[in-house]
Write a protein that binds this DNA or RNA. Structure first.
Lengths: 218, 218
DNA sequence: TTAATAATGTAACCTTTGTTACTGAGTCCT
DNA sequence: AGGACTCAGTAACAAAGGTTACATTATTAA
């Protein structure tokens, strides 16, 4: 047994021990592969074939929707103990990805071959619950994004976006350019700069080159 | 065995016979109740407790998202052979509905108690596939709505809406007021009237009081 | 150090969408 | 018929957000 195998079993127990029974944890350790992904790395693009299902150990992955013209929209972040429903989604039907996934922070995860998904669904109740729970969470998150796109104005969407960034990255300094934020919200750089400036004038944030310090977004 | 029981088993076989094994069909017939719902009837409102899971036999159900201020947005239609993932969604966690469901046409369906859901998920492979397939379909539909709200202008959204209405209701005459269409698209009556008038001038539709005749939306 | 590049600030303007207000036409009720 | 009501057409205006253009500042490469 290699060093990474031992590491993987330990990480699995730490992050999924409450969730999965011993037998399942062992199966995952057998067929899964441990991966480390640096922040900013594109893990999956639109049209990529889905090879495996990610089980997050640490870090966070940003999941985006993208249309034909390359317009983007942030959907949600995956965090430790979570997986990607879209991946499961892709396994049933179009094997091609309909989303883009980018590491938001340095991230570690275990990749499980998609073939195991159905097998485990029949075999392990805990896996079944995990998969359902995951679909449930993702569907709700997509609905919340839909709510914000349909019902909210850009100023509120921007504040919500900044708050979520702070939560996911566990820091009050956001390391992004205005352009990057504009992409995530499917807006334009000028609009985001304008709104950020307003937030600064209200004392909620501090603007700097390449980063934004969050003071208080209430 | 009552008349409705016999009817129900027949309807089940017609609509779900390919999908479910004999044993499951019988279980559904035992615990399910047959319902007929007239067009326009509100089957579920935001905050309602979820009592059962609907299996559609005929007709169609319109599923809407609604925010705190009562603003609405059409999500998708449920049709025969389909069920509501949102219902399943609600069974796990918040038991309260986060969506509104209105019969789009006269609709018949079988209601299954939510308790059976998990039981059958363990017991029947076909049920498991059905539930996964359903989540899959719904997640994709919500993503498509998100695409259209985020990336499309109102004129395109309106055309797509009219096309979908034609498909679901299987008729080229849409029986709605401009106000009702505006609610579904989360827009305003004046805007919809304006865009419809343009479509009429381009020869794509004919406007009448309380109904719209679709000529050609290509 | 200087030039090139990237990020931001800001003004002017345009488009889309939403709002308000009013009109008239059709429908329903008595 | 007459009045009330609903639906649709339209104009005038407002607001939000997107676009273009250009200036300024910070950073990096040469």
């Amino acid at each position: 047994m290699s060093y990474t195998d031992i590491l993987m079993i330990q990480e699995l127990k730490d992050n999924y021990g409450q969730l999965f029974e011993e037998d399942l944890l062992n199966e995952i350790a057998q067929v899964g592969t441990f991966k480390e992904v640096p922040a900013g790395f594109t893990m999956m693009a639109i049209g990529d074939y889905v090879r495996g299902m990610p089980l997050l150990i640490s870090g966070a992955i940003k999941v985006l929707r993208e249309d034909n013209e390359g317009d983007e929209l942030l959907l949600y972040y995956l965090e430790s103990g979570e997986t990607c429903s879209m991946t499961m989604n892709c396994c049933m039907g179009h094997a091609k990805s309909e989303i883009k996934a980018v590491a938001e922070r340095d991230t570690t995860l275990i990749m499980v071959p998609v073939q195991k998904m159905e097998e485990w669904t029949a075999k392990y109740k805990s896996w079944r619950n995990f998969v359902f729970q995951s679909y449930h969470t993702r569907l709700n998150e997509v609905l919340h994004i839909l709510d914000s796109v349909a019902f909210d104005k850009m100023d509120k969407r921007l504040v919500d976006y900044l708050k979520e960034k702070v939560r996911v990255n566990k820091t009050n300094t956001i390391h992004n350019t205005h352009q990057e934020i504009a992409y995530d919200l499917h807006s334009s750089r000028v609009v985001i700069s304008r709104l950020l400036k307003k937030l600064e004038q209200m004392g909620h944030i501090e603007l700097h080159r390449n980063h934004i310090k969050i003071i208080n977004l209430a």
